[in-house]
């Protein structure tokens, strides 16, 4: 299915991009003593699943679209409860 392939490709590309960024930022943070930027990059890593689901959404069948939206809604709620409550 095309939605699966787009999902997989988004996961793969964004993971390696963020992994590279994380490594560079971590090395710099050792000299600058700033941990916040590294933590933010780690937070970006946790957004990959949601981002990949969003990219797969337009190509998914109707029933699967509904499931993707439900999972994304759960993620938004969990994010809100974790950081803003």
């Amino acid at each position: 299915m095309r939605d699966d392939r787009v999902f997989a490709e988004t996961v793969r590309i964004s993971f390696y991009l963020i992994l590279g960024l994380m490594t560079v930022v971590f090395i710099f943070s050792k000299f600058m003593g700033d941990k916040v930027v590294v933590t933010n990059v780690l937070l970006m890593l946790t957004f990959i699943p949601a981002l990949s689901l969003i990219t797969a959404l337009p190509l998914a069948q109707r029933r699967i679209k509904f499931l993707i939206l439900a999972v994304l809604a759960e993620m938004v709620l969990a994010y809100y409860l974790a950081f803003h409550s």
């Binding site: 933590t39 946790t46 957004f47 990959i48 949601a50 993620m75 969990a78 994010y79 974790a82 950081f83």
Partner: peptide
């Protein structure tokens, strides 16, 4: 990722 947000 959901569990990770709680720990973060």
């Amino acid at each position: 990722s959901i569990a990770a947000w709680v720990y973060m």
